[in-house]
């Protein structure tokens, strides 16, 4: 019953698309049939390895770097008032920069290869992770820290077994925000200067007036976004199962 309810609106929307586009003569609004044909031709599975895989790899690499650096720096800033005061202006400046504005600089400095794109994605994703980590680490219950200290846990043990697990729910919220941004930046970096990727293929299709191909690329991006978000939720449920269980109980 729930699954029917969930699928109802998407199915209706696809039907709407199908019927309104079926007789379309506008070159920019091709029949869904043609879009699907283009989709099958490109993405099942000719360009999967050549374009989809590089896109997703860059996204995940950037997100991973942002997560690792964001948690490490965020935990340090959350612990040290002094460090936070010293670095806060730089952090505020960095997070206020629109990510897209960095692409020209990154291209000039690092070229149009994977490294340059990953760097931009990582930079933009860093801030939500970092700021959430700072906030989470600051908010850890001092009682738990008393426990950790009184039982003589080493600083490394306190970090691994007390601080980070306690901060994990909020850190995950930060990573989730970052995932959304990473996805946008993945596409944008491929629109500006690239030689492969889903964004690149979609833009090239537009430039060569292959409109169904352009639509197909956009459909793929939508599906990819949904899939990534779903995968992230699965991961989150695993890692934070204690938190979900505890919250449901209360």
């Amino acid at each position: 019953m729930r699954i029917v309810l969930r699928l109802l609106v998407p199915v209706l929307l696809v039907l709407l698309w199908w019927t309104t586009s079926a007789g379309s003569t506008s070159p920019f609004y091709p029949p869904l049939r043609e879009v699907l044909a283009a989709f099958q031709e490109s993405w099942l599975f000719t360009r999967l390895g050549s374009d989809l895989v590089p896109s997703v790899t860059r996204l995940l690499a950037g997100l991973l770097i942002a997560t690792v650096v964001g948690i490490a720096v965020g935990a340090a800033l959350g612990r040290s008032r002094l460090l936070m005061q010293a670095l806060n202006p730089a952090v505020q400046f960095g997070r206020s920069l629109p990510g897209t504005a960095l692409i020209p600089i990154s291209v000039v400095l690092f070229g149009i290869g994977d490294g340059s794109k990953i760097l931009v994605i990582a930079f933009v994703c860093l801030f939500p992770v970092l700021l959430n980590t700072v906030d989470a680490v600051r908010g850890v219950d001092p009682h738990l820290e008393d426990v950790a200290r009184s039982y003589r846990l080493t600083p490394a043990q306190r970090l691994a077994f007390v601080l980070l697990p306690a901060a994990a729910p909020q850190i995950f919220a930060g990573i989730r925000t970052a995932l959304g941004i990473a996805f946008i930046m993945m596409v944008v970096t491929e629109l500006y200067a690239a030689t492969n990727g889903v964004g690149f293929v979609t833009l090239s299709a537009r430039n060569s007036f292959d409109v169904p191909q352009m639509w197909a690329g956009t459909v793929l991006l939508g599906l990819l976004g949904v899939a990534l978000s779903a995968l992230f939720l699965v991961l989150q449920r695993r890692v934070l199962s204690w938190h979900i269980g505890m919250t449901e109980r209360n």
Partner: peptide, 17 residues
């Protein structure tokens, strides 16, 4: 040589363990 049992059990045990 000293172990402590704190007042508020709900804030002294690690809920993730």
């Amino acid at each position: 040589e000293i172990a402590s049992v704190f007042q508020d059990y709900s804030r002294s045990l690690m809920p993730w363990f």
